[in-house]
Write a protein that binds this DNA or RNA. Structure first.
Lengths: 113, 113
DNA sequence: TGTAGTACCTTGTATCACATAGTACTAAAA
DNA sequence: TTTTAGTACTATGTGATACAAGGTACTACA
């Protein structure tokens, strides 16, 4: 048992939320997403991001378009669908509730019996 | 893909933190922990809690003592070990960093190229 | 002996992040 | 054309974890 493992576990479910949030500000292709996550101190690797994007796309939360690149293979630019935007709103609420719940258990003793 | 599933995923790793926090305020037996989590709107079931407590105990973060009960079988009262207290401090930092990281990706656009 | 309530424990499943390896496109050099 | 380097997308296998479902065991009461 170590902190790194726990940190990885805490990230589960949160990545989805972060990625949708990033895409809610505009189109991005995977490498850009990884870069923006890194800026926020959330390290994500390709093996994590690609399956996640595929999952979100298959569930109708994301759509993408191909765009040629002058420095390599074409890129997949992802963006939110209306369903994705709705889902993001719910995730936002879910996240806030979780933060509040964690704060309750960690700050307060709740020793009332 | 639904919110409930995502909620379950977000809880991963966070439960450990919450349980250690609750126990940092004093001894508790599993049913009490479930009750306190429920008060904070974090629903945890036995099948989740028992293996988790056992894991934390095997890793030296928790210890327990048996206590007789007048209303059923004896109870296992868990409490933090010194190692557990140290680990909790690190988890506290980890959690704060995660919250900050998520807030960065969700509030700011970070559109700088 | 039987029933209800409480408490602890185990097994199997689904999901997810990650390590690792592979495929494919562009550009530059031989 | 072939080779090498860089960029980008994809697939497979592993470990960790929350949960559903079922099981065991103790106490109190009829």
């Amino acid at each position: 048992m170590n902190i790194e493992n726990t940190k990885a576990q805490m990230k589960k479910g949160v990545l989805e939320f972060c990625i949708l949030s990033i895409l809610s500000h505009g189109e991005n292709y995977p490498s850009e997403i990884i870069e923006k996550m890194k800026e926020a101190k959330l390290i994500v690797v390709e093996g994590t991001l690609y399956p996640l994007l595929m999952r979100l796309k298959n569930d109708g939360l994301l759509s993408y378009r191909w765009e040629e690149s002058t420095s390599g293979p074409p890129r997949k630019y992802y963006k939110l669908t209306p369903v994705g935007e709705q889902f993001l709103k719910e995730l936002d609420t879910t996240w806030k509730e979780l933060v509040e719940a964690v704060n309750k258990t960690t700050n307060r003793t709740s020793q009332n019996g």
